[in-house]
Amino acid sequence: MRHLVPLILICLLGLSGCSSLSYSVSEATMQEELTAAVEGFDRSQLKSGSPLSLTLESTDLAVGPDGRDVIRLAVAGRVAVNAFASNLPADVALSLEGTPYYDSDERAIYLRRLSLLDSRIDAPWLPMDIAPVTDLVVRLVAQTLENVPVYRLDPDAMGWGWKERLASRAVTLDIQPGKLVLKPGR
């Protein structure tokens, strides 16, 4: 019993040291990861037979704008519907806002509860009243973005040891202007 108390104290001190480590992810890093992840997601969707494709030409990501705990995302690209032996493309520019969420199983940060701030869709084949199509395109883009991580945690690249890896299952996410700060949980 007398050996058990020092062992518990050592374990608690070792684990509390994990929480002092933090890792920040910049807007630029998230933009790069998001663009690459959307490309990979689109390729896998097309391979699975999906008639829809999404290609991002630009992304602009702002973390914690106006001191709020959100990520604002402006994306521009092309959505194409492959149906009836034809390709129906539409140029899309959307401004969205969502809450970052850390998924401990995936060790990745996703955007949840995306809301549309602004949209522009340009497709010459669409009729003048495109509100129903706009809603469909916005839902498609939002659903895609909710399923693609804006950042994936890589404990090897972060230099985390076994204690931090263990604690990474419970990472806390702090939103600061221009970056997300990840800290191993308690």
Rank of each mutant, 00 (worst) to 15 (best):
V70T: 14
S86Y: 08
L46I: 13
A83T: 11
V70I: 13
D66R: 14
V81N: 07
F84W: 11
A74Y: 02
G67T: 06
G98H: 01
S48A: 15
V75M: 00
K47C: 04
L46Q: 15
G77F: 01
L61F: 07
L88M: 09
N82W: 03
V75D: 02
S53E: 10
S53P: 04
L94D: 06
A76M: 04
P89Q: 05
E97S: 13
G40L: 02
S50D: 15
D66M: 00
S44Y: 01
E39C: 03
L46M: 12
P89I: 06
V70C: 04
L88A: 07
A80I: 07
R43D: 11
D69G: 01
S58R: 15
L96I: 04
S58D: 14
K47F: 10
L56E: 02
D60N: 11
P51G: 07
L52M: 13
T59D: 11
Q45M: 14
D69T: 06
L73D: 08
G98T: 09
D60A: 12
A93N: 09
R72N: 10
D91W: 02
T59K: 05
G64Y: 09
V75P: 10
A83Q: 12
G67M: 02
I71H: 00
D42G: 00
G77P: 04
V92F: 04
Q45R: 15
V63W: 10
V92Y: 01
L61M: 08
D60H: 11
A93F: 07
R78W: 01
R43F: 05
V70K: 05
V38H: 00
P65A: 10
V75C: 09
Q45E: 15
E97H: 05
G67A: 11
S44A: 15
G40N: 11
T59R: 11
D91A: 12
R43H: 10
T55V: 13
R68N: 07
A76E: 14
R43I: 10
N87D: 02
V81C: 08
G40K: 08
V79D: 05
L52W: 14
V81H: 04
V92P: 03
R72K: 13
A90Q: 04
S50I: 03
V81I: 12
S53A: 12
K47D: 12
V92C: 02
R43Q: 14
F41I: 02
R43K: 13
P89H: 08
A76Q: 14
Q45K: 12
V70M: 02
A83S: 12
F41P: 03
S95E: 15
V81A: 12
A74W: 06
G77D: 06
N82K: 10
G98N: 07
R78P: 06
A93W: 01
P89V: 08
D60W: 03
